[in-house]
Design a binder for these strands. Structure first.
Length: 557
RNA sequence: UGCCCGAUAGUGUAAUGGAAGCACAUGUGACUUUGACUCAUAGGGUCCAGGUUCGAACCCUGGUCGGGCAACCA
């Protein structure tokens, strides 16, 4: 299949199209290889989803391949737990790396050889300055730095010192290997950056084999090069690292991938940095990485968001170099759009009040087969019991309707009990404080199914649950994590003070009985309320449902 | 006061020298056995100033504003 002349979705594909055309013209092999390179030091969030969609999506588009590569060059931060979680989340999102899973740590031998090569060329040296001392030599952005002592040592000496570093003859932090580039460069990253540091830490993959570990700048370009990555996409903050990326590979004279930077995904009412999310977890402001309020993929999964919706969002926001904050409404729209199509309907009463149907036989139970989806017959039907006493939602009763959009009961008012009968409110019983305790009504036995033989119309259709059959459930109502669109906008303030106290509100509800059999993760639309999914901890005996999102347009009565 | 990057409706994103579109959000209306969905409809935009050109969101010059960069993190 021809892989050039694919329509462009973004500036990155423009670049790839041009590269492929040039390769073709030069008679070279045309190929696209990308990679997603997480450090296994935390959970993936929706910002990573954007990168994943770009990396895997681009490879798919050009019939190339995308590698999953764990960038495990800092053993102190990394953990096997994250390795498993990252793989699970990528698969959940719908992408597959096939056999192409790699580890930076598998290239440690090659990296060491490459470092030796640089030393031999006089392009790297062992520097014994402390961090603080080197900082003084590096200087500040507005002034050139100065060359540190020992910079002009012979290659032989450096080779010997570097070998001693590797052999553990020096203390942690006593020296580093530096690239010998230009201490006066206007780009701080080119002022003799560190390539290797000494760190006695057990690596999850290489154990105690190494006591020196390569820095990101040295490791990443080499990883890309070894794997034959053609287009190495990363976020904007690495733009100033690109000259170094290119310098290292040129000095090494090895295959040179192209680094392309794009802007991170930001969403309103949340934060997207691993460090800040970790703070929320550590300070127990949320219940772990998979708290449904979190923008992590595992949190969103538990919340009930779908991978399809997240992928759709990533497609819509695209890839540019503009630093932007997308409105969370866009994500929510993608989620509702998908859930509306796919989730079966059910009835659940969140804020129950009792309805007694005076003229309905006390011992009668009828069942109704209601469609699971109003527009998709193929989703089938479920059986819902109906009896003399029902639960309806408190919002569906009022003494005096405030406007003509009101759908519920009011004294003398007839409404449709969804899928069952028309019923007219006869009386209401209140406690001494004026709170509604119960409503009595009469039903029209000829309106079975919800329509009257005389064809009369009713204003509203409300949902209900048979009281004697209702299943009690815990409902976790989730909302936005922060009260501010951009919790980080005020640099003086602590973003953690801006957490929305109402982002989780736990209530109990009356569910139609079939819902108890839901399996953890099953998604539903509770009609007229919102989208919900059975929580990870849900059981038939103790049902728990998470509110994914309310339906659009909050009720204004 | 160094270097790098960016700037198109409220938000995100197209238009690559030839009619400024789309989506979300918002307003109005229709439909509805979900105040959902669906459908129709409205408002609203090229940071500023010059220049090149028959023609500029796009090219050039100068500003303005926003972001990034001074870990032995990635």
């Amino acid at each position: 299949m021809k892989i050039i002349n694919k329509p462009s979705d973004n500036f990155i594909h423009d670049i790839i199209n041009a590269d492929l055309a040039a390769d073709l013209a030069a008679g070279k092999r045309t190929e696209v290889v990308t990679r997603f390179p997480p450090e296994p030091n935390g959970y993936l969030h929706i910002g990573h989803a954007k990168a994943i969609c770009l990396d895997f999506g681009t490879a798919e588009k050009y019939n190339g391949r995308c590698h999953l590569r764990f960038d495990d060059t800092n053993p102190e931060a990394e953990d096997e737990e994250y390795v498993q979680a990252i793989q699970k989340d990528i698969k959940w999102l719908g992408f597959d790396w096939g056999d192409h899973v790699y580890w930076a740590s598998n290239y440690f031998d090659t990296m060491y050889e490459y470092a030796v090569r640089l030393i031999k060329k006089g392009k790297a040296y062992v520097c014994e300055l402390t961090q603080e001392e080197f900082k003084n030599h590096r200087g500040v952005p507005t002034e050139p730095g100065t060359e540190p002592p020992g910079r002009d040592r012979s290659a032989e000496e450096n080779l010997e010192l570097f070998e001693k570093m590797k052999d553990g003859e020096f203390e942690d932090g006593s020296c580093v290997l530096r690239a010998r580039i230009d201490m006066t460069s206007p780009n701080l990253h080119m002022r003799d950056p560190a390539l290797y540091r000494i760190k006695r830490a057990t690596h999850h993959n290489t154990g105690d084999k190494w006591c020196i570990y390569p820095m990101y700048d040295f490791a990443h370009c080499i990883e890309d090069s070894i794997e034959g990555v053609t287009h190495s996409m990363c976020t904007l903050e690495f733009e100033v690292h690109r000259p170094l990326y290119d310098w290292i590979l040129q000095e090494l004279d090895v295959f040179q991938p192209q680094q392309i930077e794009f802007s991170r995904l930001n969403l309103t009412y949340t934060v997207m940095s691993k460090r800040k999310l970790l703070e929320l977890v550590n300070e127990k402001l949320v219940n772990g990485w998979d708290d449904p309020r979190m923008p992590t993929l595992c949190g969103m999964r538990r919340r009930g968001f779908t991978p399809e919706a997240i992928r759709k969002l990533c497609g819509i926001v695209g890839a540019t170099k503009v630093e932007s904050i997308s409105e969370v409404e866009l994500l929510e729209s993608c989620v509702r759009d998908d859930l509306n199509e796919t989730s079966p309907r059910a009835m659940a009463v969140i804020d129950p009040i009792k309805v007694i149907i005076e003229n309905y036989p006390a011992d009668l139970v009828e069942t109704f087969d209601l469609p699971n989806h109003p527009k998709k017959e193929e989703l089938g039907t479920r059986t819902v019991p109906f009896s003399r006493e029902l639960w309806i939602d408190a919002m569906d009763y009022t003494d005096v309707p405030l406007n003509n959009k009101y759908k519920g009961f009011a004294p003398g008012r007839e409404v449709r009990l969804r899928g069952a009968y028309l019923a007219t409110c006869a009386a209401v019983e209140k406690d001494s404080d004026g709170n509604v305790i119960s409503i009595t009504c009469t039903y029209d036995p000829d309106s079975k199914g919800g329509s009257a033989p005389d064809g009369r119309k009713v204003k509203g259709t409300i949902h209900w649950v048979s009281a004697q059959h209702a299943v009690d459930a815990e409902i976790r109502n989730y909302d936005r994590l922060f009260t501010e669109e951009n919790p980080l906008a005020n640099k003086e303030a602590d973003f953690k003070d801006l957490i929305n106290p109402d982002a989780l509100q736990i209530t109990t509800a009356k569910l139609e009985p079939g819902l108890a059999q839901a399996k953890p993760g099953d998604r539903y639309q509770f009609e007229r309320v919102g989208y919900f999914c059975a929580d990870l901890d849900h059981t038939e005996a103790a049902p728990i449902f998470n509110r994914t999102l309310t339906l659009r347009a909050p009720r204004k009565v």
